[in-house]
Design a protein around this nucleic acid. Structure first.
Length: 279
DNA sequence: AACAGGTCCTGAGGGC
DNA sequence: TGCCCTCAGGACCTGT
C-alpha cells in the first residue's frame, strides 16, 4: 500500500544506493512483471544500463538510465531490496520476481508477494510525463498544478463520493486509502460527500490538508502498517500520527465523537460523522 | 473463509 | 446515431 510518501522514501533510498551504478545482468522470473514488452526483452534492454536520475510521480518510480526510462509501480506489496547476497530463506526467495546484479557486486532485488506490481521500459525522453505510462495520470499531489482551483474544476461534474475522486489517479496522483481518510478528516469533510457539492473553499481545505499531511509523512519516513517496508527493512513512523484510519470505535481527537468504519467505493473508510460535514 | 487494497478492464448509462 | 465521459464491479494475487 505505498502511497506518495512511502514511494518518495523508497526513491530517496534507491537514489542514494544506485546512482551512477551499472546493471550488469538481469533475471526476471515473473513474466507479467513487464507491463509493456516481453519480459526477456526487458531483461536485455536493462542490461548494461547505468542509473542517472530518479523521479517520483504519484505512486510511480521513474529511473532515468543511459538511453531508457524505467517506470515501476509497486501497487500493494512491491518492494526493492539491495543485498550483498540473494537471500536463501525460501519464504523470502519465492517472492523475488526480478534480480539485478550491479557493478559493485550488490543485488537489486524486486519482491512482491501479491505480484500486483508492474514495470515498463521506454526509450528515454526529455519529459518523462509525456510517456504512455502517464497518459491517464494527473498532476502529483505535491506539485503546484494540484491547486484548489484545479480540483474544484475536476469535481464539478462528478457525482461520486469525494473520497472516490481523491483516489482517482487521473485527478490527482499519489493519494491512496490511508491518506484519503486522513486528508478528509483534516479538511472536516465527510468522505461520502458528493464531489460536485464541494465549493472552492472546501477544495482549498482538501488541497492544503493533502500537501501538509503528505509532506509531514515524507519527513517521518512514511506510514508502516501491515507489510510495508522500504529499502533494507527501514520503516516510517507516520502511523503514529494517523487520526482516523483504522481507528473505528475510538474517540475523535477533535470533537470527542466516535470514529466509524464505513464502506466507500468498496474500500474501508474511517470517518468521524460528528465533525466531518456531509455535503 | 472472508478480507485486505491499487489499478486495469469491461460494460452500462448519461449528456450533448 | 455517435462519441466521450463517468462510474460500478470484477479480476488480478497471496497471506492472515
Amino acid at each position: 500500500m505505498p502511497e506518495a510518501p512511502e514511494v518518495q522514501n523508497v526513491l530517496n533510498y534507491l537514489q542514494e544506493q544506485l546512482q551512477n551504478h551499472k546493471i550488469t545482468s538481469v533475471e526476471i522470473s515473473h513474466p507479467k512483471l513487464s507491463g509493456n514488452m516481453d519480459y526477456h526483452e526487458m531483461e536485455k534492454k536493462l542490461t548494461n544500463q547505468t542509473f542517472h536520475k530518479f523521479f517520483r510521480h504519484g505512486k510511480y518510480l521513474v529511473f532515468e538510465l543511459d538511453d531508457l526510462d524505467w517506470i515501476s509501480h509497486l501497487r500493494m506489496e512491491g518492494k526493492f531490496l539491495i543485498e550483498d547476497k540473494i537471500p536463501e530463506d525460501p519464504k523470502i526467495n519465492k517472492h523475488i520476481h526480478a534480480k539485478f546484479h550491479l557493478d559493485n557486486g550488490k543485488w537489486l532485488l524486486y519482491m512482491d508477494t501479491r505480484k500486483f506490481g508492474r514495470m515498463q521500459v521506454y526509450p528515454r525522453t526529455e519529459d518523462y510525463y509525456s510517456l504512455p505510462a502517464f497518459d491517464k495520470v494527473g498532476p502529483d499531489v505535491l506539485s503546484d498544478q494540484f491547486s484548489a482551483k484545479y480540483l474544484h474544476n475536476k469535481l464539478k461534474n462528478r457525482k461520486c463520493a469525494i473520497k472516490t475522486s481523491l483516489l482517482n489517479q487521473s485527478i490527482v496522483a499519489g493519494i491512496g486509502n490511508i491518506y484519503a481518510d486522513e486528508i478528509l478528516f483534516d479538511a472536516g469533510l465527510d468522505p461520502r460527500s458528493i464531489s460536485s457539492h464541494l465549493d472552492l473553499e472546501d477544495c482549498k481545505k482538501i488541497v492544503d490538508a493533502a500537501k501538509q499531511i503528505l509532506s509531514e509523512s515524507v519527513k517521518s519516513g512514511g506510514t508502516t502498517i501491515r507489510s510495508f517496508e522500504y529499502g533494507n527493512h527501514l520503516s516510517g513512523t507516520y502511523q503514529d500520527s494517523l487520526k482516523v484510519h483504522q481507528k473505528s470505535e475510538e474517540i475523535c481527537s477533535r470533537c470527542h465523537g466516535t470514529i466509524e468504519k464505513v464502506i466507500v467505493n468498496q474500500r474501508s473508510t474511517y470517518v468521524c460523522p460528528a465533525c466531518q460535514i456531509r455535503k
